[in-house]
Amino acid sequence: MSAYELLQMERDGAVAIVTIDRPEKRNALSAQVRAELIAVLDELRDDDGVRVLVITGAGDNSFVAGADIGEFAQRTPLEQRAAMTGRRVFDEVAAYPKPVLAMINGLALGGGCELALACDVRLAADTAKLGQPEINLGIIPGGGGTQRLPRVVGTGQAMRLILSGEIIGAAEALRIGLVDVVHPATELRERTLEFARGMAGKSPVALRMAKSAVRAAAEMPLSAGLQYETEAFITCFGSDDKREGVAAFLEKRTAEFTGR
């Protein structure tokens, strides 16, 4: 276990599980939580023993129920601008070189939904609820929701959720593509870790190149994205992992990837 005040970090083989631990505040994203999340990402970035990260919330009711409204309630526009400069946890998660999975065990609202959107794969309990209810406070999503949500679910569904503030259940979130997998709540952790362990057994080089190329698809025209993919593919050809993966396939054995 790592020593963070508002996070718990544990390891399951090559998988790191980061738990936001503010159950009394429904794991709301305070400034300290955001800073600690960035710190744990930095800690694990160059740790070759960790290949996949899982982010979740403490307890059974909340992943992250939103931002800590009490922190910004009295801010002026200039104060809020200052608070939104520098490294932002949503962008750090999205750009992280290793796969990051959201294990959505309950409410994922506002900033919590945005944190999940920044992750690479979203696995939810069947009891989870998601939404962008900022409109009810007279504001809009400010952690990437207006940009990442349309890229995930399409413009129409994003408009529906952002303009109405509607909170939807896991089944509806799965239907529109807001989450990728739904498990019974009692099985969520076991099934998520099983999935994460399988991913962690792949080549770290290929995982990094694949994530980077898929992320590029949202930023580039098709022609540029295809060129980006070609270069990432060629980069894999220079790795020990590619040589090991091909050799293992031809020799009909399990590959042992080193990340080199």
Rank of each mutant, 00 (worst) to 15 (best):
R81H: 15
E190V: 06
G169H: 08
A28C: 07
I140Q: 13
E219V: 06
R75S: 11
L107I: 07
A35G: 15
R75D: 15
V40G: 03
A118E: 02
R243H: 15
E244D: 10
D180C: 06
F90A: 01
A218L: 12
A73W: 13
V50N: 05
E24G: 13
N27G: 01
V89P: 06
V121L: 02
A247G: 10
F72N: 11
P184T: 09
E24V: 14
L117T: 12
A125Y: 13
I55W: 15
D180T: 10
R22N: 08
T192Q: 02
D91M: 02
R51M: 08
A125V: 10
G156C: 11
K25F: 08
G156P: 09
D12H: 07
M220R: 15
T192G: 02
M159E: 15
R253Q: 13
K202A: 14
L163A: 15
R208T: 10
E10S: 15
S203H: 14
V182T: 08
V93A: 03
G112H: 08
E43L: 07
G259D: 02
L178I: 10
A31E: 15
E251A: 14
P221L: 04
Y228T: 00
D60L: 00
L161A: 02
G59Y: 11
P204D: 06
V182E: 04
P221A: 06
Q132K: 00
T254V: 12
L107A: 13
